[in-house]
Design a protein around this nucleic acid. Structure first.
Lengths: 232, 232
DNA sequence: ACCTGAACACCGTTCAAGT
DNA sequence: ACCTGAACACCGTTCAAGT
């Protein structure tokens, strides 16, 4: 009996939710580049054109996948400490996006923010406002959380698998990177095979920014004042 | 006379550099999605297979394009104030990536960092080291500059063209975003048509992080100490 | 030895013919 | 009215036939 026949016997009616869930699972398993309408249809034991009853086109499929993933992020906890609330939410988002490595790129490729992304950002802004940050400061803070300062933001140096010994030619050409790699190698605190402790690095950046935000809040920061005294 | 004939009369021999420069120009003009090997060959008045003499495949073409763009970033200035040096370099990188809106996505999609990206990161790390940051602190700082805290990093709310009045339904569903949008609209400091002052937002995040780094440097920060006293 | 047309194995999507 | 096979206009890349 072929696989096709086997699945046919237990055929579930197609709906948008099942299309999206299967697409997410397929992208998790095979990567986003291998996700095609035809391949997805095959996975659902359906003729390719059947998908177009539930999504207008592939862009709408990707919109739906982005929303499905963002919907997995925990809602914000409540509590008096806004830094703690925001911190927990951000770390939840990080866990979700580590589960779906293709998702960040898909979300960033949407031309307009999707509803779940808007909801996520909205409640994030709400957490800052509840913490006593002014609307103005919250605005800047939200931008700061979304910016990529180097211009691109590949989570740098994918040293998770430093296959083989460090390349001596690389060390000669890029001495500072070699030095940083050396500090990472010494520092085998919590990771298994050497390389960087990505979780630590993430929290380092997060806490630095959150502390910076809190400092500004305490000063009663307003953008007019900051702009006036801005560096030339 | 067809365009093809016209170009044929002044045919320049194909080489890798010309392939890459044309590919960058084509991506600038038509977007990265419209860049295909076939379309690029047509632009160069060449049969598609001719490209494969100069790049092994499309991935290598994208590698070369990424490197060409990163190579446009100004070298670091020298000077006693490391914050000023780093700030200037980052703003140069920002200008470059604004000129090539497709480039950030292409750089992030490379599976291994390309030589120009490594050189850029290496000299950036060098600027921190020259400024007196320890190798260990420099390591964390480099990660912080490359991290995307929200999980994704679409430069948020593309409010550059808020076509039409704010959507009242949106305001009802996403009250905090609506509030932020309102503060942006009032604050027409330097942008023309309303919306966010993206340059200000970028520098806000940059300066906040740089000030945070400097604070840690002054404290003689070491990761061992920070890890020991880390929040639970 | 070099170059290149045709071909292959894919895409996303349209459309007309089938039920 | 709904469903779907064939077709269209693309891809990146292989390969064999041409010079």
């Amino acid at each position: 009996m072929t696989r096709q026949e086997a699945t046919h016997t237990q055929r579930i009616p197609l709906n948008k939710d099942r299309v999206l869930r299967t697409a997410v699972a397929l992208a998790d398993a095979t990567g986003i580049d291998a996700l095609s309408m035809r391949r997805l249809a095959q996975e659902l034991d359906v003729v390719p054109m059947a998908l177009y009853k539930h999504v207008a086109n592939k862009e709408e499929l990707l919109d739906g996948m982005a929303d499905a993933v963002v919907g997995e992020i925990d809602p914000p906890a409540s509590g008096p400490d806004w830094q703690r609330v925001v911190r927990g939410r951000i770390l939840s988002a990080r866990r979700v996006l580590l589960r779906h490595p293709w998702a960040a790129r898909v979300i960033e490729s949407r031309t307009a923010p999707t509803p779940a992304v808007l909801a996520y950002l909205d409640s994030m802004a709400g957490s800052f406002r509840d913490g006593g940050l002014s609307a103005d400061l919250t605005h800047h803070v939200m931008h700061a959380m979304g910016s990529r300062l180097l211009g691109f933001s590949q989570e740098l140096f994918d040293t998770s698998d430093p296959s083989g010994p460090p390349d001596p030619a690389l060390a000669a050409h890029y001495p500072h990177i070699a030095e940083l790699a050396a500090t990472a190698a010494h520092d085998e605190g919590s990771t298994v095979g050497g390389g960087c402790d990505d979780q630590f690095e993430f929290e380092f950046a997060l806490d630095l920014l959150l502390d910076g935000f809190e400092g500004l809040r305490r000063q009663g920061w307003t953008s007019a004042r900051a702009k006036a005294s801005h560096r030339p």
